[in-house]
């Protein structure tokens, strides 16, 4: 039995009211949407806010629709942050335009969790580590860790930097599609590419400050022309967090030659990693076996997982080229 610590639950019905509640309670408050990450973490005493500000009753955070955009000529698909992962995975426009995103959303955890968990929550998911996602009793017995209550990293032993793993399924796909995240806070609204949303710090790995709400994801409709793929490695085919995920989006011309291509892996370090030099290698070439091998080998060189998840890091590393290859083969079969 894991009890929650005492807290007050607030259910504002507008963004303004939510921001005002956060201003009132400051550091003692946290935003919560589906609760599938915040609640177990509170049960583990990783967060102990006195106030939870729930975002699920806010109508402004609902809806999936195509809208015009001031900075994207063809317009964007706006996915509001409190839409559940089930809704994103099954939405006809998402499936039609961005099948890799629907796929990634459909592979988060298990069905019940996707009915509660939201796309916004998935993007803002806390990083995970063997030495962090444990009960207070367990963590205390080990003398705590760098990310919470302690001053030593049990993964790197000597390191002073937290290496907890970014473990969300949808961000890698959103990055390959050139999506943008919109945040609303006490200082107003700001937007940034999802690619810039993450930082390489396992303790807090996003640029969202704790008093900001991720309100929506905007995906350029033009990205729908890309061939997309998403593959995920985990121990069981359901429930588990990823040990590794790979997202690929390729813009291929009529004669099958690559105009541009992007690959993003995650589940390894504290932020999704955009694989570098893909365009240098692939531009103007056919996406054939030879090129796929080259890109997969390049990915292997760039990825160095640590033992932040109790799975042999060498094996996880060896799986990088295997899964990059699978993603690229999926792209060619479209």
């Amino acid at each position: 039995m894991l009890r929650l610590p005492p807290y007050q639950y607030h259910r504002p019905t507008s963004l303004d009211a939510a921001v005002a509640l956060m201003a009132e309670h400051g550091d003692d408050a946290m935003y919560v949407a589906g609760g599938t990450d915040v609640v177990p973490n509170m049960k583990h005493r990783l967060f102990e806010p006195g106030h939870l500000i729930a975002l699920k009753s806010i109508d402004e955070l609902k809806g999936i629709e195509e809208v015009p955009s001031s900075n994207v000529k063809e317009g964007v698909l706006r996915i509001s942050a409190a839409e559940t992962l089930t809704a994103v995975a099954s939405h006809p426009r998402v499936r039609d335009l961005f099948p890799a995103l629907a796929d990634a959303a459909a592979h988060v955890a298990g069905p019940q969790l996707r009915n509660s968990g939201t796309i916004g929550g998935n993007v803002c998911l806390d990083t995970r580590c063997t030495y962090y996602n444990q009960t207070h009793f367990w963590r205390e017995a080990l003398g705590f860790c760098l990310k919470k209550d302690g001053d030593v990293c049990h993964v790197t032993r000597t390191g002073k930097k937290c290496v907890a793993a970014h473990s969300a399924d949808t961000p890698p796909v959103l990055i390959t599609l050139g999506a943008e995240a919109v945040l609303v806070g006490p200082n107003g609204r700001r937007a940034m590419p999802v690619a810039d949303f993450f930082v390489a710090d396992g303790i807090v790995n996003t640029r969202r400050s704790r008093d900001e709400i991720l309100t929506e994801i905007r995906i350029p409709l033009a990205s729908a022309a890309c061939r997309q793929a998403y593959v995920k490695l985990r121990q069981r085919k359901s429930i588990d967090f990823p040990l590794l995920t790979v997202a690929v989006a390729a813009d291929v011309d009529g004669s099958g030659l690559v105009r541009s291509i992007q690959g993003v892996v995650t589940g390894l370090g504290s932020r999704p990693r955009t694989l570098t030099k893909w365009n240098d290698v692939a531009e103007g070439r056919a996406l054939d076996g030879e090129l796929i091998d080259e890109l997969a080998k390049g990915a292997h060189k760039q990825c160095h997982p640590l033992e932040n998840i109790i799975v042999d890091p060498e094996w996880r590393r060896a799986m990088v080229p295997v899964f990059v290859k699978r993603a690229l083969e999926q792209v060619t079969q479209e």
Partner: peptide
């Protein structure tokens, strides 16, 4: 089953 959808009761603050 919450409004027709299977949901985990252990993760749901009762107010929700």
């Amino acid at each position: 089953i919450l409004d027709g959808n299977p949901t985990l009761a252990c993760l749901m603050p009762v107010w929700e």
